[in-house]
């Protein structure tokens, strides 16, 4: 459990970091929290010749609300998210999510942006970000660009980031009033990846029907994080009574593509998506009404 040797750089600015990435190309790997990367390096499943450590770049650890977005900087740790008053009061779904990632010690190092940038469909934030309609801000030699999170995960362990780009920020639209969200995950024990996870965000209109802003994201039931678009389309404009919740959850289950593995057979996971979707919608509705 010893990593292979590598070159190490710790740039002091984002520009320097981008310049390094541009120079090194695919030889470089960004180190932020390192809680996925370092174990992979110790297992020698990953052996990047050059590590670009972005932890020395100041000013990337912000959680702020600005211009209609919650903004999470590249060096915000999971535990920062968990403790943020802003997040706790406005985005309980983010607290749901971060608090079931790995364990408290890992969360002290692991970054929220890294949880997306790793491109792992088993990670928890992607589903939540899909449900929230988040935008990934990438910075590279060609400047900054926004990538809607639904376009961020083209394939297994792959993201829309170019080799010379850094995920600088996640932007989450501030939801309108009468919005609630929840993330539910079934894990075999603390620290495990999800057997299945479901994130739901809904906004109700004046008549109590679901608006077009509904978002449903699924964790670890496919080769990429899944945006359950059919279930989202189904709930739009609907009163979410018991029957509608049931139907939505069945549609979401149908959108999952799990495989048999050590966490369980595919049919089990598909059914978990159904159960967790229904429960997450109910929890989200409670939160619309001010529940916790």
């Amino acid at each position: 459990m010893i990593p292979r040797s590598f070159e190490y750089s710790a740039p002091g600015t984002l520009d320097e970091a981008v310049a390094l990435l541009q120079k090194l190309g695919s030889d470089a790997k960004i180190l932020s929290g390192g809680q996925s990367l370092i174990p992979m390096m110790k297992l020698r499943l990953a052996s990047p010749p050059h590590i670009v450590d972005i932890n020395r770049i100041p000013g990337l650890d912000y959680i702020t609300e600005k211009d209609g977005f919650l903004r999470i900087g590249a060096l915000v740790r999971e535990s920062d998210l968990e403790r943020s008053e802003l997040v706790r009061s406005r985005f309980p779904i983010l607290v749901d999510t971060t608090s079931v990632i790995a364990d408290p010690l890992v969360r002290n190092q692991a970054t929220v942006c890294g949880n997306l940038a790793h491109g792992d469909p088993a990670n928890d934030h992607p589903a939540t970000m899909l449900a929230l309609g988040a935008i990934v801000v990438a910075v590279g030699p060609r400047g900054e660009r926004d990538v809607p999170v639904e376009n961020f995960f083209p394939a297994l362990f792959t993201t829309a980031l170019e080799a010379d780009e850094i995920l600088r920020e996640i932007k989450i639209p501030i939801p309108p009033p009468s919005t609630g969200g929840a993330y539910l995950k079934l894990e075999r024990k603390v620290g495990d990846y999800a057997t299945a996870g479901v994130a739901v965000q809904i906004t109700l209109n004046n008549s109590g029907a679901c608006t077009a802003a509904a978002g449903i994201g699924l964790t670890n039931v496919g080769f990429t994080p899944i945006k359950a678009v059919k279930a989202e389309a189904f709930v739009k404009g609907k009163q979410l009574d018991q029957a509608a919740v049931k139907q939505a959850s069945e549609i979401a289950a149908g959108e999952s593509h799990p495989v048999d593995d050590i966490r369980g057979p595919a049919d089990y996971k598909r059914d978990l998506v159904r159960v967790l979707t229904a429960r997450a919608i109910v929890r989200a509705l409670e939160r619309v009404k001010g529940g916790v």
Binding site: L186, R188, T195, R263, G264, P265, Y268, D271, L272
Partner: peptide
């Protein structure tokens, strides 16, 4: 006794 076994 895993959840998957009980579910089945």
């Amino acid at each position: 006794i895993t959840p998957a076994k009980v579910w089945k």
